[in-house]
Computed example of a mutant assay.
Amino acid sequence: MTAPRLMLLDSASLYFRAYFGVPESIKSPDGQPVNAVRGLLDFITRLVQDHRPDQLVACMDADWRPAWRVELIPTYKTHRVAEAAVAGEEEVPDTLAPQVPVIEQVLDALGIARLGSPGYEADDVIGTLTARATGPVQIVTGDRDLFQLVDDARRITVLYPVKGVGNAQLIDEAALLEKYDVTGAEYADMAALRGDPSDGLPGVKGIGEKTAAQLIRTYGTLPAIRAAAADPLSKLTPARRKNILEAAPYLDVAPTVVRVATDAPLPDFDPALPKEPLDPMTLEALATQWGLGSSLERLVETLGA
């Protein structure tokens, strides 16, 4: 029996892209913006048409800034915490936040699996489902952090939207080696060394993407690079050695923060791509209330096909 083809959606990444890619003039009958809702439905339609997965899971952020990551690196995502934002919620545009519950309701009525895990990000849900998968996996995300899961041997790839999901770049081992000179298994070590200002990760002073990749090519792993820095006979330059040694407190914890979890607790769920809506009456009511029109009709037709 052929193993099912699993597609995992980094939902927030996609509805953010839909929100900024579809005009806010797309509104419900009572005048509320539904551009993110309709844009995401169009994305899913295109993904199912183009890639024909057997299983589809919309992975959600139950906690976009988990306490266990913040405890290790207090600056983790601090810049995203707006003073006016509700405690515990990521700052999102005022007209996007009300659309997220609508997205969730529509996915539930369609019967598309929607999954989060308390205390974990969507990335961790994706990492956990990927670790459990027995067949090929396509991860759809605009977040480079998930490149660390790419694994040709296990047929795990990333679809990285360039201009919408219809023009998504396929990220496999060859693509990673060409662009970053690292494999999927090495990507997290590179990311820890490089840092990421957008996530509040300082990285190691003087080490950018290319230098991090060079160090990995030379020494193999982050622990081996740190061992070289501690070895006075290694060929590291004095400045690089000094910067790596001074970054020890950061490097002690960075791998745990950067690497996606593969053991997030998940409830029982059915990942099978639905052929017809799970709750047609609720779906019809949502379609009428929010004016989802052709976007929802196309998705239902595509699922039925």
Rank of each mutant, 00 (worst) to 15 (best):
M1F: 12
A3F: 06
L8N: 03
Y15M: 01
Y19F: 15
G21K: 01
G21M: 06
K27S: 07
Q32C: 04
N35K: 02
L40W: 06
Q49S: 14
P53I: 04
Q55G: 00
L56V: 06
M60D: 08
D61N: 06
D63Q: 15
E71S: 14
T75V: 06
T75A: 15
Y76R: 13
R80K: 13
V81S: 07
V86G: 14
E89S: 13
D94S: 15
V100A: 11
I103E: 01
Q105S: 15
V106P: 02
D108F: 13
G111N: 06
R114Q: 04
G116V: 03
G116D: 05
V125C: 01
T130Y: 10
D143C: 07
D143Q: 10
D143I: 11
D145A: 07
D145L: 07
L146N: 08
V150P: 00
D152C: 09
V158I: 12
K163D: 15
L177D: 07
P202Y: 11
K205P: 09
E209M: 11
E209F: 13
A212G: 09
A212H: 12
R217M: 11
Y219F: 12
T221H: 05
L222N: 00
L233F: 11
K235M: 03
R240H: 13
A247V: 01
A247F: 04
A254Q: 02
V260D: 02
V260G: 01
A285L: 10
W290V: 04
G291H: 06
G293R: 10
R298E: 00
R298L: 04
V300I: 08
